[in-house]
């Protein structure tokens, strides 16, 4: 493994993806690309956490429906969310009866689960893996910030946690999009302390993974039709561009974009710098980018999921925000 990058020799393909989007995401610019749109973020459940776990289970069940597979035909589920002890994912999996690995890399959990899944397939241990993640605005607010009804004006640099869930089925038998390579990120901390400023905290991690990936495979950014970061938001994306420019990497507007920037209507002020959360990259990739890969708008896409690894405890203890970023290169066969 050169520069923490793996190149897959087997054809690891995406059979299908699912995306279930919350109300704000559904009215956003990508709304009609998602499989299911919700018009309420509680849907009669007792709590937001329970709803999130139901969403997570629904995303996996919808995937089984789409692919006509039985739970017994799936070898492994890998997934995560933002809640303590992976509330949503663990509780979703008790309904499914499939072997399960719970993973946490904050908002980079989707990338992490895809990399683990692809490696399991590469090593011939399993045939079919489902990778799934979810997040919910109200559960994340409670876990990382303040109660919902507390009147606190949002900082202009803050981001809005995405509500939704998504799942992807990886296998070696069917599919048009393959996972070509992946780069496992390092934990990077440049000393950003502001908990509202996730974009600035995560941009160095995204840059570290991006440059490691490109130099390991000896590629230029223009090798990809699209380089897509997970949830840096507008501000984080701008900082990543500046970091890249300083290091003589050219990622301009055409080939670079960010899921957090794409998912919401940017005219709405309260959204701050855009979307964040585990489901942000999941929804945008599963709903939008995957379809664009299939309809031949793109051939090669590099998805760089980004996660800020802070907790409420760490920020109260005055720690800076470490971040991690995992990259996966998708390619149409």
């Amino acid at each position: 493994m050169i520069n923490h990058t793996i190149t897959y020799k087997k054809k690891i393909m995406i059979d299908a993806t699912t995306s279930i989007a919350g109300p704000k995401e559904s009215t956003g610019p990508l709304g009609h690309y998602f499989d299911k749109n919700l018009n309420d973020d509680l849907l009669g459940q007792k709590s937001y956490e329970i709803l999130e776990s139901k969403l997570h289970a629904s995303a996996v069940l919808l995937l089984l429906n789409k692919t006509n597979l039985k739970p017994s035909e799936i070898d492994l589920c890998i997934g995560g969310d933002l809640n303590n002890e992976l509330y949503a994912t663990n509780f979703a999996m008790r309904e499914l009866n499939i072997p399960f690995l719970g993973v946490y890399a904050a908002c980079a959990s989707y990338g992490l689960s895809i990399i683990i899944g692809a490696n399991f397939i590469e090593s011939n241990h399993v045939q079919r893996v489902i990778c799934s993640t979810s997040s919910h605005f109200s559960t994340a607010e409670r876990q990382f910030r303040f109660p919902l009804e507390l009147g606190t004006p949002r900082a202009p640099q803050s981001q809005w946690t995405t509500t939704g869930a998504g799942a992807m089925l990886l296998n070696t038998l069917k599919g048009n999009i393959r996972i070509e390579s992946a780069t496992i990120g390092k934990v990077v901390d440049f000393g950003v302390k502001d908990v509202n400023d996730m974009g600035a905290a995560m941009a160095p991690a995204a840059f570290s993974t991006l440059s490691a990936h490109l130099s390991a495979l000896n590629r230029n950014p223009s090798y990809y039709d699209l380089i897509l970061t997970g949830d840096l938001g507008k501000r984080g994306a701008d900082l990543l561009k500046l970091l890249a420019k300083k290091n003589n990497l050219k990622i301009d507007g055409k080939i670079y974009s960010d899921c957090g920037v794409l998912i919401f209507n940017t005219t709405n002020d309260s959204m701050g710098q855009g979307g964040s959360g585990t489901a942000c990259a999941t929804l945008v990739f599963n709903g939008y980018i995957y379809k664009k890969l299939l309809d031949k708008s793109y051939r090669r896409v590099l998805l760089i999921t980004t996660g800020a690894l802070l907790s409420k405890t760490s920020s109260l203890q005055n720690q800076t925000i470490p971040a991690i970023s995992h990259a996966i290169a998708f390619e149409r066969i």
């Binding site: 009804e149 507390l150 009147g151 606190t152 004006p153 949002r154």
Partner: peptide
């Protein structure tokens, strides 16, 4: 109240109404 507060900022947080909001929310 959170919508009033989002517009009013400290104007809605500092009076006793903000204190009520911080307990009830």
């Amino acid at each position: 109240y959170d919508k009033i507060s989002e517009f009013g900022g400290a104007g809605a947080i500092i009076p006793i109404t903000g204190f009520a909001n911080s307990i009830i929310s």
